[in-house]
C-alpha cells in the first residue's frame, strides 16, 4: 500500500513541538500503513526503543520502507496509534503495587474501547506487546469493569471461559488426538518422574 493511500491517524499538530515533528511509518501485518508522531511513539516502550536503535533521520523515515509490526493487524494498530496520538506527551505511569488498582478510564479511551470483546482482547494483546503501560492499564480495567456484577455462569458466557468439566474434556480430547507414540513417551516420562527420576537422559 502506498503512503498516499495509507490510513492516517488524526494528529493535533499544534501540540507537537517543532523540533519533534517527525513522523515514523509503520506497517501492520495486513499491509496497512500508519504515520505516527515521534512524541506519540514514546508511549510505547517497545517502539520507542526500536526507533532509537534505528536512528532514522527525517529523510530515512520517508525513503526507507515502513517499519513492519508483524504481529498486529491494521484494525488493532489503528486503535493503538489513535490512543498514542491522543495521549502523546503524557507521563508513563509507574506501578505503585496497590490492589485493586485505581485507574480512571478517560472519556476518549472509553469511546475508543467501545468495541467488541474480540477486538478489545486484540488491543490488550497489542498494548502488552508494544509495552504501552497506560493503554494496558485502561484496557485491563475495562475488562475488569465488564466482570462486575456478573455471576460465574455469566462470566463464562461473556468471556467464553471453559468450566472445569469442559477443561477436562478438552484435555482428554487433546490427549486422544495425540500421536499414540508421543503419548506413550509422555506416560513413560511421567512414570519415571513418579519413580524419582526427572529425565530420560
Amino acid at each position: 500500500m502506498s503512503v498516499e493511500n495509507a490510513p492516517v491517524v488524526d494528529v493535533d499538530e499544534a501540540a507537537i513541538p517543532v523540533e519533534k515533528k517527525m513522523y515514523y511509518r509503520f506497517e501492520s501485518n495486513d499491509k496497512k500503513e500508519f504515520r505516527v508522531s515521534e512524541l506519540a511513539i514514546q508511549q510505547s516502550e517497545t517502539l520507542n526503543r526500536l526507533v532509537e536503535a534505528m536512528g532514522y533521520t527525517s529523510e530515512d523515515v520517508e525513503n526507507k520502507p515502513a517499519i513492519a509490526i508483524e504481529n498486529i493487524d491494521g484494525k488493532t494498530l489503528k486503535l493503538v496509534f489513535q490512543w498514542c496520538e491522543h495521549h502523546k506527551g503524557e507521563a508513563i505511569p509507574v506501578d505503585d503495587g496497590s490492589v485493586p488498582k485505581i485507574v480512571e478510564i478517560p472519556e476518549f479511551d472509553a469511546k475508543l474501547m467501545d468495541i467488541d470483546n474480540g477486538l478489545l482482547f486484540k488491543l490488550i494483546w497489542a498494548a502488552d506487546y508494544l509495552n504501552i503501560v497506560q493503554l494496558l492499564n485502561v484496557s485491563c480495567k475495562k475488562v475488569a469493569n465488564m466482570a462486575q456484577g456478573k455471576t460465574p455462569a455469566q462470566l463464562r458466557r461473556v468471556y467464553l471461559l471453559p468450566s472445569d468439566e469442559e477443561d477436562e474434556a478438552a484435555k482428554r480430547a487433546a490427549q486422544e488426538a495425540q500421536d499414540p507414540r508421543a503419548r506413550e513417551v509422555e506416560e513413560e516420562f511421567e512414570e519415571r518422574k513418579r519413580q524419582g527420576g526427572n529425565s530420560f537422559f
Partner: peptide, 28 residues
Amino acid sequence: PKTRSFTELPIHIFEMVGEHLDMFDRLI
C-alpha cells in the same frame, strides 16, 4: 477478521485484570 478470545491472552494479562478487581469480584 479473526479475533482473540480472553483465554488466548498471556497469563500475566489475566493477573493484571485481576489487579483491577476488588475482593468481591475476585471471589466471584
